[in-house]
Amino acid sequence: MLRYTVKRLGSLLASLVVASLVIFACIEVVPGDPASFMLGINAQPDTVAALREELGLNRAPHERYFAWVGGLVTGDFGTSYTYRSPVSEIVVERLAISLPLAIYALSLTILVAFPVGILAATRRGSLTDISVMATTQLGVAIPNFWFALLMVLIFAVKLRWFSAGGFPGWDAGFLAAVKALTLPAIALALPQASILARVMRSSLLDTLSEDYIRTARAKGLTGRQALRRHALRNALIPVLTIIGLQFSFLLAGAIIIENVFFLPGLGRLVFQAISQRDLIVVESVVMLLVFAVIIVNFLVDLAYAWVDPRLRSRT
């Protein structure tokens, strides 16, 4: 397991380096001169020169790249041109909303998808199974931001159970904050839970038809015991893959859903930064999200090896 981990760690580092190069090239090299880009066409030459100096643009691109990466490693993301404060501070502030939202949505996804998928698989062909398949088919096809709008219409505008948007802050109390994140989390979780429930169902159906399940039943285990001791663990491998993939969709989805509910998270930050051409903020947020996706994929790979020891020797 140690050798496997070290090997995976190496490719993790390589991915991070290449990803950072791509992001740096797209945002800082492609626009030509970032300073005049950020200030727009009407900027005075001396203002542009001052910003060039401030951003360190007079250095060669490779020096700037190393300075940027060095900063990322030490937690210094640079200074936002529009907010006039360190990007790391702004990002941490926004993460306090986006991260709990993503975790909340992922927990809902798993809490709903696992039992529903297991139920449908163990009662294959029944009315329960058919309704699960029909509902999840709809859940996969529904755009989550539209579902979010519909929930606002029903639960905020008509029933007035929730507010239509905004975030009171964690200072307002844990429950108030969680309540503000509930509709967004449900909207995010719906399509993901639908996908995961379908994967869980089909994966479990595959394992339930394996010979070792028949053997277990022949040894005298009840269906439930065979399911718990043998089938579930084996069925988890494809499910883990999907959870790993879903994390990146969840992050991207969170950016969009934050827009529906006017939540001041990373999503709002990045869209404001785009309209204000605050390249430093966009660059940092994109890098942070890509970093998160790569780390999660790495963890999923490790989780595989933990669930399925055969994988350790194969790679």
């Binding site: 991915s15 290449v18 990803a19 791509v22 992001i23 797209c26 945002i27 492609v30 626009p31 880009f37 990146s248 969709f249 992050l251 991207a252 950016i255 969009i256 990045v270 930064a273 785009i274 051409r277 390249l279 966009v282 994109v286 999200l289 890509v290 996706v293 790569i294 994929n297």
Partner: peptide
């Protein structure tokens, strides 16, 4: 694998920024 780490929304964000 690398491209998979960039959800289409992030690619769109980078292109739109520039």
């Amino acid at each position: 694998d690398l491209v998979f780490a960039f959800p289409s929304l992030l690619i769109a964000i980078m292109i739109t920024t520039v």
